[in-house]
């Protein structure tokens, strides 16, 4: 009995030593879904932003704005707060939303506060150094009509090796002229994650 145990232990250790030696890298397409830990990942960021922007553009506020103002609205992305259990990279999420909105071609998009500061700095520099016919004047920026704000919330329920991870992304579009909320979007993601019972 003891002999057999030691024999198998030895074999197991040998196999483990060999198996632990190599790193494998495989290239995959950015849109290919590959869930590892169950955490918020690139696929969630992309799917949520695409679906929410689709919904945003399908609602009546857009038509109403064009009718009353006679042109397409200018939108700015404000703060999207991470109220979740995870350190989510909000920059990629905001970038995904911006990309989906700009590429729709149905709204104008205004640079964020940080980006604006850098551009204004460049204009100030142009004032001093650029040729007159290429110089861009101050005070001719496009003011935004609406600001997009939001939150990401999570509810996580854990029992032993199993957990349910629930994400809720809420976005609101607010009119800068009169604080009217013109659109509220919500997207929910639910994941069921089972962790392994043993490792090597």
């Amino acid at each position: 009995m003891i002999r057999t145990i030691f024999y198998h232990t030895g074999l197991l250790l040998a196999v483990l030593l060999i198996a632990a030696c190599s790193t494998k890298v495989e290239r995959i397409e950015p849109d290919q879904v590959r869930d590892l830990s169950g955490n918020w990942n690139d696929t969630d960021s992309r799917l949520v932003s695409e679906e929410m922007v689709q919904d945003l553009l399908a609602q009546p506020w857009l038509g109403q704005h064009i009718r009353t103002q006679g042109g397409q609205p200018a939108v700015i992305v404000g703060e999207i707060r991470n109220l979740s259990h995870e350190h989510i990279n909000m920059r990629t999420f905001v970038a995904d939303i911006q990309r989906a909105l700009i590429n729709s071609g149905r709204v104008d998009f205004v640079a964020s506060r940080d980006e604006r500061d850098e551009i204004r700095e460049e204009r100030r520099d142009q004032d001093l150094h650029a040729r007159e016919d290429t110089r861009k004047a101050m005070g001719r920026e496009l003011g935004a009509d609406y600001m997009l704000q939001g939150t990401i919330n999570t509810i996580i329920d854990v029992e032993g090796r199993q957990q349910v991870r629930y994400y809720q992304v809420d976005l609101t579009l607010i009119s800068l002229a009169d604080n009217r909320i013109v659109w509220i979007g919500q997207k929910k993601i639910k994941k069921f994650v089972t962790r392994p019972g043993v490792r090597s």
Binding site: T9, L12, L13, L16, S37, H87, R195, P196, G197, V198, R199, S200
Partner: peptide
């Protein structure tokens, strides 16, 4: 510390080889 946290997450699962080593 975040790296430690992620590693702990993976390591809390019982390892057969390590248990064997702990007992031998």
């Amino acid at each position: 510390l975040e790296e430690a946290k992620e590693l702990i997450d993976r390591l809390v699962v019982i390892s057969i080889s390590e248990q064997t080593a702990a007992l031998s």
